[in-house]
Design a binder for these strands. Structure first.
Lengths: 159, 159
DNA sequence: TTTTTTGCAAATACTTTGCATAACG
DNA sequence: CGTTATGCAAAGTATTTGCAAAAAA
């Protein structure tokens, strides 16, 4: 299995610079909390939850609050500076067992089917099997659905 | 975009038969609630949430409870008769923006990185773009990690 | 100085659990 | 009849929100 190279100090600094640049570009203020929260996720290789991030950041900033961590993680994900492993929405179920992918709207959470031959998705399967017993392959395309694109254009939402 | 064929009555009946067969094989009782909940998800094309399923089932069985729906959906997913669109765990974040896939354990929720060239994942992208503006591709392999496999073997958990 | 962000506390959503009764096999 | 599943109510997690004070630009 390919091992991830640990992020170097130089690389991390570059990412921090880009983070600040992106904040400024979007008119978001570069606060100590945002910087620490971003640094924590950017340098972690363990896919931390909000609570995990909170625990780490708390060691440096004893007064940071959990809701700031939630708010910041959400905005960092919106800015595409970090990724969500899941979908940020309540669980949904699918009774269609035919192989297919999903488009998931990151604004409204709507799920659309994408039927397509997914045989080539099986290629990394051998890699995956080194982690455990693979029972299901889940291919998701995340982004903004047409309706939410329109809403952002016309409305006050300005992300 | 390829359109899903609506599940025919015959096909649905076959799936219901298989559902009963699977319940019996695992020593689970075939109750009216389980049958209705399975039928609802199996014949839906809208990726319903637990609440959605509850609302539909309630029309036929006015006294069904939401916790039964939750319990049944969980066991149907464990039996692999239906799929979870998400991961059934709290959200986790990833600071590594290099393209890679994830193995996610359906028992403990642990996430493992799978580094692999994902260029061929881009193929269904055109399909996905008909739904909206794709910002991220998420490839998940779900199953049991090695540790949880051991736990099931040795312990009392018998799914 | 003006506007955004934070921390606190409280509220909300979603999901799970204990227990007595009902229902399956 | 013995065991499993259900419904009810209550608890438990995860996440979000309103608001006054603090901090960035």
């Amino acid at each position: 299995m390919t091992t991830a190279t640990l992020t170097s100090t130089k690389e991390l600094q570059q990412r921090l610079d880009f983070f600040e640049q992106e904040c400024r570009r979007r008119g978001l203020r570069v606060t100590e909390q945002r910087r620490e929260i971003f640094k924590t996720v950017a340098s972690s290789h363990s896919h931390p939850s909000a609570e995990d991030v909170f625990a780490v950041v708390r060691e440096k900033m004893s007064n940071v609050s959990l809701d700031t961590v939630y708010r910041t993680l959400a905005s960092l994900a919106d800015m595409e500076l970090i990724l969500r492993v899941g979908t940020a929405y309540k669980e949904r179920f699918d009774g269609d067992l035919r192989p297919h992918a999903h488009f998931i709207c990151s604004d409204c959470g709507e799920v659309y089917d994408i039927f397509y031959n997914l045989d080539h998705m099986m290629l990394p399967l051998q890699e995956a099997f080194s982690c455990g017993d693979v029972r299901q392959i889940n291919l998701q395309y995340k982004g903004l659905c047409k309706q939410c694109q329109e809403k952002r254009k016309s409305g006050t939402v300005s992300f």
